[in-house]
Write a protein that binds this DNA or RNA. Structure first.
Lengths: 338, 338
DNA sequence: TTGAAAGCGCTAACAG
DNA sequence: CTGTTAGCGCTTTCAA
């Protein structure tokens, strides 16, 4: 590749002028003609600035990493797309990492930053990371932004409007006439799960209902955990006629378990899930969901991170635009009569 | 972070010695004691080599990119895991890109290399890229390795044993007693699809059967395309009693379409898919699949790329270890009697 | 056995 | 308006 020196030579100027022209240095005063020569030379030689040279000089790698617990869910694709778009919009590259590594190797993050490979991180917490471990991992580091979940003592996060999501899912069931509505939530320590449950509770209250422990399960978001939860809910007496599952992937497992237990969906029990993904249209029956703006979360998270890296103050963001949206398919219907 | 100069100073040696010690330079002869002092100093200061400095000096970024058409399928997770493991095993970082970009911006790849952001690419072809476009994209560039598919005129690829996969899926149905076996394949120009179809054909031949065009659909791997294909297959006369779907995601769509058409699985028609993913255990009925070693493909691909980058000759690899493996679930059974 | 020094490509402070 | 130059952190050649 062409170097800056070559451009400068060809344009008959010094490297510093070339550099400043190509970087659009605002307080560079140059006669248009020299400017044009530089631009032309750069184009002719197909110049692109060398990354390492710039990084070394600026001590900024212009790369950030997105660390997630699970890339095997289509939800991740949305997050990644948002993050990638925001990153490349600001001329940054995005690395993807899996959080098991990070958990196994406590100061991996700090080391990656130390090496100068990346300038910062967007981190999606893994559910098996304790609050304490998380806090110590992120400390008060401005170079780490938390995504989807947040912590009590630290600003710098982007989350969904989980309360609204939980409320919307529950209200849908309520609107269909359900009164015995169960919740398959996440594990206790997940703040996401707590917020979705709060939405569920609020919706119930607004309808003059109270939440009943017998209809609540908190086993986590995996298909298997939710399957187990669903099976046990069907044995409650009376059993619920509708179930809010706090995560699509869990709901997919729940569907299987319900059918294996011999119940019909939605005749015997309706199921609505929070989050939408393509597979939801291909379950049997197709799953009613609440679509959450996860792309936007990814997008905002890298915006926030990049902002912080250039000195903006810390803040916590709740993405509420677009708002959670109900996608009605066939897994929900009016309650049966038993 | 500590710099090499700081380490050198603390150890009372020159930077060059420090560098050579820390890089385990084989033809460096140093007395153990100096060596130890350097190592100790590095440990005390928690030294990690600065990335940009090294990259600039070596003109090697030690980063490679994995470019894929679709991150929204769990299959991608396997590929990524394999690629990541191989990359970090050789002290490289992995970037992830989506191929739409690459297609939209023809010389993105070359530019990324030019900038020195990455040393090379593992590229998974998108089906809507024509053979010609692909060839011109990768040319004979040693810094690009193709994954999952390959081209006629160029070495440097890692693919699955698709023929074996297609054969195994078909033999499974044959073994259950099916004689009218259909194929929902990929689009014509996909070499993956062609190989899987070849496996299908071979298995049929071995059983003394011939493939019939009326039982073959080549619409692509998406759930919707396969759904349409499945629906149309059910209207063939006579209809097939078993269907091999060349991709899990397609099969998930096919299942839906078949049920919507009112047919029972596997009583009326059995379905087996190539590739396995967690969702297959949660379809209804749970889907019988042929698990392919996609993690290994990712792994081998970056190995191959890294090898090529350090001068090894080009080659094409077919990953056949572990071999395709049948995962019997509930979507296949003996043919019904109609 | 070890050290000095050049130079990778870039930006920016400073000098003209 | 433009040029000179130092220096970011590293590796490696060459000399001692």
């Amino acid at each position: 590749m062409a170097t800056l020196a070559e451009i400068a030579e060809r344009a008959g100027v010094s490297v510093s002028v070339a550099s400043r022209v190509l970087n659009c240095d605002p307080n560079l005063r140059t006669r248009p003609e020299t400017r044009d020569r530089v631009v032309l030379a750069a184009k002719e030689l197909n110049y692109t600035a060398n990354y390492a040279g710039r990084a070394l000089r600026l001590s900024r790698s212009k790369a950030i990493a997105l660390i997630v617990p699970d890339v095997s869910t289509p939800l991740f694709a949305d997050l990644l797309a948002g993050a990638t778009d925001a990153a490349s919009g600001e001329d940054h590259t995005l690395l993807v990492g899996r959080s098991e590594r990070v958990v196994a190797d406590g100061d991996l993050l700090r080391r990656l930053i130390g090496e100068g490979r990346v300038d910062g991180f967007v981190l999606q917490r893994s559910d098996d990371l304790s609050d304490q471990a998380l806090e110590s991992l992120v400390a008060n580091d401005a170079r780490i932004v938390l995504v989807a979940s947040r912590t009590a003592h630290r600003k710098g996060s982007v989350v969904l409007d989980d309360v609204a999501g939980g409320r919307l899912a529950t209200e849908h069931l309520l609107g269909l006439g359900h009164r015995r509505i169960a919740l398959i939530g996440g594990v206790d320590r997940s703040d996401i799960a707590r917020r979705r449950e709060q939405g569920y509770t609020e919706a119930l209250h607004c309808a003059g209902l109270r939440k009943r422990d017998a209809w609540i399960r908190r086993l986590g978001y995996s298909p298997d955990a939710s399957a187990a939860a669903a099976a046990s809910l069907l044995e409650a007496s009376p059993p619920p006629t509708g179930i809010v599952v706090a995560n699509v992937n869990g709901a997919i497992g729940a569907l299987t378990a319900i059918r294996q237990a011999g119940a019909e969906i939605p005749e015997d029990v309706s199921v609505v899930a929070i989050h939408d993904q393509w597979m939801a249209a291909h379950t049997w029956p197709p799953l009613t969901t609440v679509k959450m703006p996860f792309y936007e979360v990814g997008f905002e998270a890298v915006r926030l991170l990049l902002g912080r890296l250039s000195g903006e103050p810390a803040k916590d963001i709740v993405v509420s635009d677009p708002p959670p949206q109900l996608v009605v398919r066939a897994s929900t219907g009016p309650p049966g009569n038993y």
